[in-house]
Structure formats: C-alpha cells, structure tokens
Nucleic acid binder design. Sequence first.
RNA 1: GCCGCUGUGGUGAAAUUGGUAUACACGCAAGACUUAAAAUCUUGUGCUCUCAACAAGCGUGUGGGUUCGACCCCCGCCAGCGGCACCA
Length: 826
Amino acid sequence: MVENEKKWQEFWEKHPELYRANDFVGTDRSVCSKKAQTQGSVRTDKKYILVEFPYPSGSGLHVGHAFSFTGADVYARFKRMSGFNVMFPMGWDAFGLPTENYAIKTKQPPQKVTKDNTDKFKSQMKQLAFSFDWSREVNTTDPKYYKWTQWIFIQLFKAGLAYKKKMPINWCPSCKIGLANEEVVNSRCERCGTEVSRRNIDQWVVKITDYADKLIEGLDKTAFIEKVKQAQIKWIGKSEGANVKFKIVGAIHESPLQHLEIFTTRPDTMFGATFMVVAPEHELVDEILNNNVGAIHESPLQKIKNYVENVRKKSDLERTELTKGKTGVFSGLYVLNPATGKEIPIWISDFVLPNYGTGAIMGVPAHDDRDKEFAEKFGLEIISVYDDEEKIINSDFLNGMKPADAIKKMIDWLQEKEIGEAKSSYHLRDWIFSRQHYWGEPIPMVYCEKCNWQPVPETELPIKLPEVENYEPTDNGESPLSLIPGWVDTVCPICREPAKRETDTMPNWAGSDWYFLRYIDPFNEKTFADFEKMKYWMPVDVYIGGDEHNTLHLLYSRFIYKFLYDLGKVPVDEPYFKRLSHGVILGPDGQRMSKSKGNVIVPEVVAEKYGVDVVRMYLMFIGPFDGTMAWNENTLMGVKRFLDRFELFIKGQINNQSSNETVSSQNAEVIINKLIKGVTEDIDSFKFNTAIAKSMEALNSLTALKENINLKSIQTLIKLIAPFAPYTAEELYSQLEKSDENYGSVHVSEWPKIDEKYLKEEKVTIAVAINGKVRGQIELDTDRQEEKEEILKMAKENDRVKPWLEGKIINKEIYVPGKMINFLIS
RNA sequence: GCCGCUGUGGUGAAAUUGGUAUACACGCAAGACUUAAAAUCUUGUGCUCUCAACAAGCGUGUGGGUUCGACCCCCGCCAGCGGCACCA
C-alpha cells in the first residue's frame, strides 16, 4: 500500500494541473488545466472551497488538521468531479509567537523556522493526498504578501479608522505582549494562561465598532450555520436604549462637566432612578479629585482617592469576581433626576464598567438586581415603577403603560427636552492593533515631530522586517524593533525632516484577515488581487473552520472585507457565503489531545501503519463532520476491513471481465444507482459518515449477489469512493482501460450519473397498523399505490391483520399512499 | 445568570424531516477454516416474559400536550457539553 502511495504521490506531483483552478478572466491562461485547454467548452461554474489555513507549528500536522482538511478535500474532490471549476487553496498563517519563541530558544531566525515548518506541513499534506491547488500557495510572512497587509492598514488610517491612543491594555507579563480583549480569556492570557495586568501603552487602535451594525446586518445575506451567526451577534452585543444627561447640582460655571451622561436600555424606569453610579475611571472622578466641579456637599476627597487607588490595584480577575459583593463610595455630588425633579446622589463603584456605554449608569434598584444589591448595601432609596402585571406605576405621564410603549414615550420626552436621545451601545470594543514583538508585520507608519503620524508612501511598501541578531521582547514593553537604530530612523514622508518608524508590529489576525483574496491572484504586484478575478471567484462558497474562530478571525476578516468593499476594492459585500464548523477529535480517552496527557494521535504515524486512505476514511466515518468524537482504533479497523474487501471485490470483478462486455443484473444496477444517489446527496450536505455507511452497505449487497457487473459499474464504484480514498481509487482505476484524457486520473473523471429507471421501485411495502400498532404488511406494484379501495381490501384480508379485525368495528381507515395504512377499531 | 447545542442498544452513531426506530460500524456470542493462534468467512445480537416463535408487552433523558400516527412539532422539568458573563 505504502508503495502505491509513493507511486501516486509522484504521479500527482507530476500533474499539478489536475487540481488547478481556472480563472477564466484576464489574459493569463497558462494556469488552465489540460481539461480546460483541450476541451472547447468546459463548465465555468465555480466553487471556492476554503478551509482555514494553519499556523505551521513545529510539531507538524495534527489530527485536527487531518480531520478538517480531509472533510474539505472530500467535498472539493466531489465538486471537481461533478464538473465545477473548483478553487481549493492552501497557505500559511505563519507570523506569531510560538515561532518567535522557538526561534529565540533554538537561536535560529524565525524566517528559517517558518520555512522548515511549512515544508514539513506541506509534505504531510501531500502525503494525506489533499487536492490543494499549490500554484496559489500564500504565506503571510512573505514580504510580497504582507506588502498588502500593510497597504490595508494605511487605507484604514487614511479613512480615519486607525488611530494612536494611549490606553490601558491587557498586558501579559509572561509573553510580554499586549493582548486584544478577544485574546483574554477569564482575565488570563489565551496563550499561556498567565493572569493579565493593565498597562498604559500608546497603541494603534482600529475602529471596528464603526462597522458593528454592518457586521450584524450582513449576516442576513450569508448562509452561516445558526450558532456562528448567534456567536457573532452576541459578541457584537448591540443594546438599544438611550443616552440621558442628568444635570449636576451646583456645578461651578467653569467646570467642563455640567452634566452626567448615562446609557440605559430602560429609560422607562427613570422615575425609579434613585442614585447614579460612575466607574472609578470616569472623568468626573478626576475632576472631583482636582476640585474642579464644586458644590460638593460633603468633602470625602480622601475616601474617594483611597477607593479609586484600591480599585486600580485590582486585577481584572478580582474586579469581576461576582461573589465579592458591591463596593463603592459616595462622590459628594448630586444630580437632578429630570423625571422626578428630585436630587439624587452620585456614587463611585467598580461594578460599573468604564468602557461600556458612557461609563456611568442611573441606579434603578427596584428593577435591577445589581442596583438593588448596591442600594441595599448603602441604604439608598428604592422606588418601584412597575406592578406585578408589568404596568408602570409611580411615574406620572407613564403610568399604566406597558414597557415597550413607555420606552418610546420616554425617549420622545427626553428628546423634546433635549436631555437625551435614542442610542445603541455595543459590547464590541475597538481593536487594539499593536503588538510589541518582532515576528509580525511592521506597522507602516512614521512619526514626525512636526507632521505627527504619517503613513509610509505606498510606493515604499513593503516595509520589510529587518533581519537581526536579537529579537527577544524587551522588558519595558517596547517592540524589539525599537532597538535597531538603523531601522527606526527615517525621514518624514511629508516634510523630509528626520523622523522615526513605528516599531510595533501587527497582531496575528492582520495577515489572516484577507488571505482568501490573495489566493485569487497570488502573484499580483499591482494590487492585492485583480478585481475581475475577484468578481469571478467571490464570495467564498464554503468556508470550513473551527468554532474557536467564530468571534475572532471571522469577525475581523468580515470587517476588513467590508471596509475594502466600502472603498470599492472588492466586488461583493460579504466575503463568505456559507460557514461550516468542523468538529473536534478527542484522544482515545475521551479527553482533548495534549502532550501532557500523552493521548496525542499523530496522523502520519497511523497512516504509515494502515495507509492514508484508511486514516482519511476513518476520520470521515467516525461521526458527523461537526461532532466531537473520540479516536477509536477498533472503528478504524472496521474501515480498514471495508477498504480491503472493496479492493478485493473490484479486482475480482476486473479479472472476471470477459472479452464480451459483461452485463450487470437488474439487482446490481439498482444497488449501484441507489448508491450514486445516496453518496452524492450525502457528500453535498457534508454527511460523510452516512455516505461511507451506504458504500459499505452496497458492497455487502453486491458481494452477496455473487454476480459479475459491467465495466461502467466498476468505474462507478471506484469513482464514488475516490474522494475518500484517493490512492486506492487511483490504483484501481488505473487497472481499467484508460478511457479519457487527463492522464486517466480518476480524480478528474466525471462523477457518475444516476439512471433514473433503476431508482423506480417496482414494488412498495405498505405497513398495516391497527390503532397505530403495526401488525402486518402488504406488498404491491408501485403503479397501483393510488388504488385506495383495492389496497384497503387487501390489507383487511392479510393473514396477519385479519385476526385483529375479527369481531371489531372499524371506525376509521387511514391510507397514506405508498407508506402505510392505519385502521382505528373498537 | 444569559446564548447555543446535545440526550436513541454494551459502544460510535443512523432514521427519506410527522409514517414499520436502532441503518452502517465496533464490541460480544456461537460456528467454519486451522495442530493452535491471528487473519478471514458465516450466523446471531434493544429490553422483558418464554423450551421456542415469523407470539405478546415495553422501548429514543423525564412529565404532559397536539395528532389516526411523534426520536421528529408544542409546553414544563432533569442531565451533560461549548461559549459569554457586574454589558446597565
């Protein structure tokens, strides 16, 4: 088997046109497949099938890769054989920390580590027979590639969507890197698990929040599976409500703060607002401490100072600890509740988040659990504004109304008085785009004392990473690039005076945001991809990936794509039509595979033992494509037996082909045509496990027939298995007469067509039930299934049914044509 | 707490989407071949009662409902998995 694998690998290597996608636009036709060149008219319907490109780690391809890539490959092979012009590309998301760390540890340049790793991945992928179009391979660390990643950043900057801001970032003390909110899990670094702390660092920030609504609305145009849509909507977290300004009582004229603005989703409860709370980071707190507001009723300045300092010392983890109970301090200030006309106190508490809404809330303790807890702890007034029937009370002009109406009415009232307006808030935060590391795309910006931040002229792109001796992260949190004077020092593109380069690099996501566009036109030097080619290929028809990317990569890349769309640079407004989640393969012990647990299965090793086709087919048979399944070697043996029997059967059939063409029996034709239908439908809907089950069933039936089948049937069986077992199929197919061009490869042969005449059942079996219990069955010719009276009569006389009807009265007779009969008796 | 998903034999899982539940595979049992084992092949395999049955009853987490008919639709509960979580 392994020898065969080698033979066919070399064969496929020699004929890369087999899996090549045709662009059908532009002038460069050299990449067309032989099929396209030799045939006058080929089908130009395209399928862009995309599977998330991997991060090429040092440990090589793991089972998860093998699983998801095999699923995508089966689908791609099937579509290709079905006559589609399939693009199924692969590339490398190769910037990132593990490579950098490994490079530091082994004292090699990350460029070399990346090269070694991608070489290894690529050869493993070839061994596993993935039918990628390697002529479109991309690598995010290739300067020719990241030139365009940098170009996109400059467009963001020019559009005002990228700005520099000193902001508290999540700082991982172990990785020495700033993290995006999305990279912080339970206040810990997603990568290393170290608890993150806060640091104030000048960062590039990208305004993804400007696209929040578009990112929600765009989902309607996609066919993403529901859980992905929900995850994105939830992550963006849009809440509709109102911003309301409360007048600060007795604020001095000079104070910049005359009002306290809050966000609420329930303006209808304003009559029940008995206090206000601001986050310790709120600007009001600074103003109070600087004595800039005035009219403070008491003067608890020291108390406030202590509280705020205390909160700052807390880690995120401590701060969000729900069980700790509410803490807070009175600010000494009051605001006027415009609804009630009453003065209510402003408190400072860390349960209010600084970066959501306005960082301040109105406290409605009667109808919000958190506000209630706070009010009870500090003895604040509690006023109900809803009765048990969800109708408003104690609220003047809102009394008696239902919530939805009251919200509308209140917003109108606020707008009329010019103290509030309808407003949406989002959980989504702007995207911190700076990383203080070496192994990433340099951010193509220059700082000039006179002209401020300026983008590098586009003609100077790419800004290449300098090759250096030392790229370890620095302890002060600055990028290692800052230590390279020759690289940092440059001139301002505007005034030509000395200036300094940005030394931060981009996050991982930057390169993977748009890679699917580069596959379309990987060698273009004038633009990231030719518009006409994109018009042909976009959107991606199916995008297969892991659930872990549903909110990070998927949202970022949709955002960048929508931004490019608004610039008129890409042809359609959503990048991915369909998004599918692949499942997870657990270790034999049912646990997630990890080196520490020692339950890691290496696909390469298993493939050497049983053959690649067995591994591929087993992975597809183990369960539904989106399921969570444990590795089980027993089931794998079952698949191996099947493939052995399949090979034996086909070889036997080939030997039995007489010089006169053998004719398949009716029975055999029925089995084979049913199989074509089943496998076609199942692969089309990613139900690989049942497609294989049907193949097993068909082989069992055919073997039991002990008959010879004709050449076409043999070909059909081989073709149907080809997407799952490419080596076995190619070998068996090669033993047949070579009937077409394309070097006789089964993988570009035509997918079998159904002969409908064999799918028509001649007989149908109709179950006969009495009071819903099946008691017998009758068989009749299919074309007679409409003869209701006749059939009911047959049913009543059926040997097994008759005894049940004796002496009973039939109250009702139900007949479902071709399916079943139900007699209701008493 | 919120969002999403799942619950079917000893096990992984099927079920044409409301029409004969348990396909396919594993495991197990018996048998064939073999000095023997492995491999391979054949047969059986949801549960209960039974010497046995092509006999009857029960059976898709659980309690109800709709329907001639429910793994499938509706309502309530229980358990598990994944994600989010002081988001006003």
